[in-house]
Nucleic acid binder design. Structure first.
Length: 957
RNA sequence: GCCCGGGUGGUGGAAUGGCAGACACGGCGGACUCAAAAUCCGCUGCUCGCAAGGGCAUGAGGGUUCGAAUCCCUCCCCGGGCACCA
């Protein structure tokens, strides 16, 4: 038997009262109620139409509430106690509102495509589907044991064919759409084709539509689609046969797994045109009730900025120009050199055969003194391609680069300025080229110092307290323009506008808007994901698989590994596992011009795809004709979308941005009725746990560590403690199964909600669980006689003090639960229970009415014990739909209040005044107080602050 | 490096411009018991003082205010995200 049980005194079973609320009794109660809820369909939420509708259900007429969790990835390790934190929170919130009469939709599905199942399949040979299904079954069991009130009919898995059929359908809708900038919304691609055919819209380069051949027309139309094929730079690892995430690439440019070389190279990939939605993704943040920091993160991620595009003619090359985007066109006069991203496609065209005379040797790169410009550029490109984008941005201090040998003309000054390549300029942002203004940009300043380039200030730095604050540094702030010709004297904003106008006038550029947001790379060279509903014809042009042929099911393959190629061959192309499913790969279809053979797309979709729309499928999980019935969608989603969405802050940008994007496309095309998917967002924290490392820095099993004299030991070996995310790598996992076994699921639920505010991360401490467990034992004892198991309540009315405590508790708990402040709600219930313990001890029993309201308030948090007490108190049904207690305002009024009295902000005494006393009366009472009187006797009162009901402060001089 | 968040007793936390430390864990003391466990009661930020009472205290430093854990500035530390982990 485990130590924690022994310390609770549960070992001497012959001594324990027969009806003590211990782990065994809790377990029995919990299993019984979970079965009863399941049999009675307690948490089924009726739909207004379709197979999940039920007119006879009284809940059908209630106001709806849609409470949603970010669904889990069913990992093989199962749940640890960190996972259910948010799920318990939403369950408490959902149960609370069910008791306020709402028709609550609360369900949980599984985000079951993904890399770990595929890796596991590679290691064990087990099919990813088999592993995934086993993991889902295990998680279902674990979650059921927590007593979560989910509607089980709606628990979809993204890997269900009946689910991913609709993921593919949505992809086809995106593929079948284009963004009409004038209408500012997505429209079906057929409408674009019709406009082109009618001549309402110009064709490519003004060509007449009728003059184009079929392939040219198709290419032009495809270039407008919201899903399109494009070359994108990726981390290509031929040794593994796949593309890697930046985090899978080590600092020296090799793969994390296998240590193969990784090459940055362009690869043709599916992309989704999320950038078309930049402005709406920004503007519609105002429609939703999300934490302001999350909105800020999304705004920063999108990174919309206004500035100008400016063209710099390349010296000697007639007609060749380098286009840059800058947020600071006002600083153009200070642009003393240019930088291209190493991958920029202009580089090869501008590099001369010989270095210009007087080229400093430092500009020629550190790869050999006698090299030619082309060699120096090639060597630098190799050096840069070995770094990830993250490292290139993170490098910070040290600037590297090489001169291309070419010059461009600054359109403002007319001066030729040298053109460099450097890895601090990224191909993915703006045009992949910058004008460098060292005077007003810190990175440019550092680069200029490194390479001895001229620095011209075009904004006057302020004098500063010691006059030299900006000596040797770029100045990025506000100030009058200097050294800038017609801009001199203007402030930054005014100078930007003036420069924008001048650029237009002379034809050297134009004011523009840009953003950091990039189109969404949507292809993966993996097996365990949704196949694309796309086939290619003999010209390599993509076609949609007809909707009535969905789903395109994942074929069986023998090996889930992508083809592993020569590790050093940077120019090879990936062969995803699906390329080996020969029977599946080729297909005969009639797409309008007779039966023809086509080849299927062999990439799969990223895991984000399934998680972009699952909240819509919960609404109508069995619908075979539509992804969701419109009437059902309107009922649950109007007016603003999901009422409460709870999940980790780590999804603040990617998942939440991708899901908003998909939702907006579906909105534009008329498939959903709200512009935003999630009205209110709440980010729960996550549970950290102490982890221990030995002297070599190796994590040791945390449960085996003991504390002696303030130090920690694993066996006899001293170890050091740290706190980290719970998980296998830190060997600090605590499972809900263990805690339920030792204390019961209600204790686990209550502990997780009591540990701290739901939105904060906090360390797990199994030792602290006894506190909430003892609370539940006391609550049980307030109602049940432990010796006999008989119910014990008094039918006489409560005394005034008890009524007062009860109604104050109700008022506070109600407010706290509505705001998801469960930790303080629980503290109030502790206080009520402590009071009831006194009443029972004084009078032998607590009043029935008070006990019943206490049980009802407890029930969202600890539903099993509450249902059991409710039943034993004589109520036949479940309390899930009983009215949550409401405070009697008359019981909340106080006749007098105690007010602190301060002198110069320090509390010196307290006075008791009538609750409705006015300021003068309060001040008079305070002055009459002995201590205050003596303190004020020899002093001059300069000011008196009286905040009725809060405090009195005498300011003396 | 950039963006976002956080730092309060021995511990988890409460207080979001007005009594710092609610509630709980741990600790100390007491009642009950042959004894222990369980249960119940009391005390428990640090510090000076026999006491009455005083001083100090919310990561560090500065500022605003009658009054700051709370608002502002600078710095330090910890966590999350940085587009193919989910």
């Amino acid at each position: 038997m485990c130590a924690s049980l022994r310390s609770l005194g549960m070992n001497d079973e012959h001594d324990a009262p027969i009806a003590r609320y211990d782990a065994a009794l809790a377990g029995e109660i919990e299993r019984r109620w979970q079965d009863e809820w399941e049999a009675a369909h307690t948490f089924w939420a009726p739909n207004p139409a379709g197979p999940l509708a039920d007119d006879r259900d009284p809940r059908a007429d209630a106001e709806k509430l849609y409470v949603l969790d970010m669904f889990p990835y069913p990992s093989g390790a199962g749940l640890h106690v960190g996972h259910p934190l948010g799920y318990i929170g939403t369950d408490v919130f959902a149960r609370f509102h069910r008791m306020n009469g709402r028709n609550v939709l609360h369900a949980l599905g599984y985000d079951a495509f993904g890399l770990p199942a595929e890796q596991y399949a590679l290691e064990t040979g087990q099919h990813p589907r088999a592993a995934t299904e086993a993991n889902v079954a295990n998680m279902r069991r674990q979650l059921r044991a927590l007593g979560l009130g989910h509607d089980p009919r709606r628990s979809v898995s993204t890997t269900d064919v009946s689910y991913y059929r609709w993921t593919q359908w949505i992809f086809l809708k995106i593929f079948g759409s284009w963004y009409d900038a004038e209408a500012d919304r997505a429209r079906p691609i057929e409408e674009l084709v019709a406009e082109l055919e009618r001549g309402d819209r110009p064709g490519p380069d003004g060509a007449a539509w009728a003059d184009l051949d079929d392939l040219a027309r198709r290419a032009f139309v495809d270039a407008h689609r919201l899903a399109y094929l494009e070359e994108a730079p990726v981390n290509w690892c031929p040794g593994l046969g796949t593309v890697l995430a930046n985090e899978e690439v080590t600092a020296d440019g090799r793969s994390d797994r296998g240590n193969f070389p990784v090459f940055k190279r362009p690869l043709k990939q599916w992309k989704l045109r999320i950038t078309a939605y930049t402005d709406r993704l920004l503007a519609d943040l105002d429609l939703i009730d999300w934490p302001e920091p999350i909105k800020t993160m999304q705004r920063n991620w999108i990174g919309r900025s206004t500035g100008a595009s400016i063209r710099f003619p390349v010296v000697v090359h007639d007609g060749l120009e380098i286009e840059v985007f800058t947020t600071r066109p006002d600083t153009l006069f200070g642009a003393t050199y240019m930088v291209l991203a190493p991958e920029h496609d202009l580089v090869d065209r501008i590099v001369p055969a010989e270095w210009p005379v007087d080229t400093p040797s430092a500009w020629r790169g550190s790869f050999g003194v006698d090299v030619l410009p082309a060699d120096a550029v090639r060597a630098y490109r190799e050096f840069a391609s070995a770094k990830t984008e993250f490292e290139r941005q993170a490098e910070g201090r040290e600037k590297t680069g090489v001169f291309t040998g070419a010059f461009a003309t600054n359109p403002a000054t007319g001066d030729p300025i040298p053109v460099f390549i450097a890895d601090y300029v990224l191909m993915g942002y703006g045009t992949g080229a910058i004008m460098a203004v060292p005077g007003q940009d810190e990175r440019d300043w550092e680069f200029a110092e490194e390479f001895g380039l001229p620095i011209v200030r075009t904004v006057q730095p302020p004098p500063g307290p010691n006059g030299e604050e900006w000596e040797g540094r770029a100045y990025v702030g506000e100030g009058p323009a200097i050294n800038s010709g017609f801009l001199d004297g203007l402030g930054v904003d005014e100078a930007k506008v003036r420069m924008g106008g001048w650029l237009l006038e002379v034809g050297a550029g134009a004011p523009t808007v840009t953003s950091k947001l990039r189109d969404w790379l949507f292809s993966r060279q993996r097996y365990w994901g949704e196949p694309f509903p796309i086939v290619y014809d003999e010209h390599g042009m993509p076609h949609a698989v007809p909707e009535d042929q969905l789903a395109v099911e994942l074929p069986e393959v023998e090996d889930f590994r992508p083809r592993e190629l020569d590790p050093d061959d940077a120019d090879s192309d990936p062969e995803p596992p699906l390329a080996r499913a020969e029977a599946w790969l080729e297909v005969e279809l009639d797409l309008g011009d007779g039966p023809k053979r086509y080849v299927r797309e062999t990439n799969t979709m990223p895991q984000w795809a399934g998680s972009c729309w699952y909240y819509l499928r919960y609404l109508d999980p069995t619908n075979e004709d539509a992804l969701v019935d419109p009437a059902v969608e309107r009922y649950w989603m109007q007016p603003g979308g999901v009422d409460l969405y709870v999940g980790g802050v780590e999804h603040a940008v990617l998942h939440l941005l991708y899901a908003r994007f998909w939702h907006k496309v579906l909105f534009d095309l008329g498939h959903v009725s709200t512009p935003e998917p999630f009205h209110r967002l709440y980010n729960q924290g996550y549970i950290q746990a102490p982890a221990f490392r030995d002297e070599r820095g190796i994590a040791v099993e945390a449960s085996e560590v003991v504390e002696r004299d303030g130090a920690f030991f694993h066996g006899d070996e001293p170890v050091t403690r740290e706190f980290g995310k719970m998980g296998k790598s830190l060997k600090n996992v605590v499972t809900p199964d263990d805690i339920s076994r030792d204390y019961g699921a209600d204790t686990l639920r209550l502990y997780e909600m009591f540990m701290g505010p739901l939105d904060a991360s906090r360390p797990w401490s199994t030792a602290d669980i006894v506190g909430v467990h003892k609370f539940l034992q006391r609550a049980w004892r307030s109602v049940v006689d432990e010796e006999t198991g008989e119910i014990r309540v008094a039918d006489e009315p409560a005394d005034a003090e008890t009524r007062r405590v009860l109604h104050r508790t109700i008022a506070a708990v109600r407010d706290d639960m509505a705001e998801l402040k469960f930790n303080t709600a629980i503290a109030r219930l502790f206080e009520l229970n402590n009071h009831l313990t006194k009443v029972v001890s004084d009078r032998g029993a607590a009043p029935r009415d008070v006990v019943e309201q206490f049980v009802l308030m407890l029930s969202p948090l600890t539903p099993h014990i509450a249902e059991e007490l409710w039943r034993r108190l004589g109520h036949p049904g479940s309390l899930a739909y009983e009215l949550f207690p409401v405070a009697d305002p008359a019981e909340l009024l106080d006749e007098s209040v105690e007010v602190p009295v301060q002198v110069n902000g320090k509390v010196r005494s307290r006075i008791s005044v009538p609750a409705d006393a006015d300021q003068a009366a309060i001040e008079a009472t305070a002055r009459a107080d002995d201590r205050i009187g003596s303190l004020l006797a020899d002093a001059t009162v300069r000011k008196v602050i009286v905040v009725p009901g809060r405090l009195v402060n005498f300011v003396v001089g």
